[in-house]
Design a protein around this nucleic acid. Sequence first.
DNA 1: TTAATTAGTGTCAAATTAACATTTATTTTT
DNA 2: AAAAATAAATGTTAATTTGACACTAATTAA
Lengths: 234, 234
Amino acid sequence: MEYYREDSAILLAVDCIIFGFNGESLQVLLIKRDFEPERNKWSLMGGFVQPDESPELAASRVLKKLTGLENVYMEQCSVFGDPKREPNSRVVSICYFALIDTQKYTHILSEEYEANWFPLQNYPTLIFDHDQMIASAQHRLRIKAALYPILFELLPEKFTIPQIAALYEGVYNIEFDKRNFSRKLLSSDLIIKLEEKDKENSKKGAFYFKLNTAIYKEKIMSFLRYLPSWFPEN
Amino acid sequence: MEYYREDSAILLAVDCIIFGFNGESLQVLLIKRDFEPERNKWSLMGGFVQPDESPELAASRVLKKLTGLENVYMEQCSVFGDPKREPNSRVVSICYFALIDTQKYTHILSEEYEANWFPLQNYPTLIFDHDQMIASAQHRLRIKAALYPILFELLPEKFTIPQIAALYEGVYNIEFDKRNFSRKLLSSDLIIKLEEKDKENSKKGAFYFKLNTAIYKEKIMSFLRYLPSWFPEN
DNA sequence: TTAATTAGTGTCAAATTAACATTTATTTTT
DNA sequence: AAAAATAAATGTTAATTTGACACTAATTAA
């Protein structure tokens, strides 16, 4: 064991993988760096952890700075700390993924950034190891979304079943039987049917639903029963 | 975005939650700190990330220092970074959990430590937020072990089905039907029956099995089928 | 030789999944 | 105005999986 030392030259940063859903595909929000190194290249939004803040707080701060949003669903994912991951300094970065409702994200706040949504299937080459960060966040999102109904965080207040289906299909990049999907979802009691219909996307129109937040919080585990029933806790 | 700064006073550490299995219950390996602050209190084994090493490497180094073991199953879990988590300095700690075969861990290597195994149900109060670290690692272990057959990492080369059952029961702190358990396990082709029997623990004796490492690596996802069949990747 | 103990295999009903069919509401076309 | 087209929503069913319970097998101790 090394004793306490105050001379560590390691900088601690956070990077945010910001996921959104445009109704068709899963997207990431990227910025064009306006500072060196790697100025004008696409990257994740990030920032340094300040002496008086926790990494979680740093991530929220950074997210708010770009999107203006607070109380967003965020989750810590992996830490990237290879000594050579940035060429000029030793920065260890803690990644967070955020799920945002793109209807709430209306405009870029800061003049500093040239932010843009890109589909996860096809985004530009990023600086450093940011591609890996996205890949690992995406993997984690898939695992998590199979266990917990977190994908609702990506949807607006009102949504239709075909929308949710499209979202799941986008996340897993797979098609599945909408009939079985909707039955399973409805039987979970996780969503509440509204009177109103969405007439934009089909002739017949699809009923809007809203999230049953009580069930969402309470029954969050048993959702589509992706964990066995004996599994003790969340 | 803050620009690059070299004056961050944040220290980066790793802490290892070392899990073992003694045949009865799941255990953690703890050390008695021999340095200030909190000298002589129980804690996790940890250490600072050195300027030239990645956090993963730091964790392996720290683990090796205590146990002498290399190539151990380790996994990054959460980062603890509250500014006040340690009283005298700002240390952000990345946690790793390790799964070790206690038969390979024979003796404490360093005179520095007074290491001891404790059952997860009942271990001493730890310094700082180390209790939370264990809790979060345990939770992660449970989730992961429900998806992947990683618990075999805790078992010796040769093991019996009752042993595996006891391990799973220990991890989830629950009892389940051994008959259904063994049928499920056997149908996974994950284990290979050996000629030899373990006569130590029962009159009848239980056949030893070994892990089918090919299947372990390849079919690792579908194990007990805790994820739906459409789940695309690991 | 018998009783006790635990390993390992067997059976079956209930629940769940996955594949496929039909009906319904609405708009567009003829 | 009727028919065709489109996509939503509900329905049916066989195959698979789970979970509860019973029994047989191998061995040691009494």
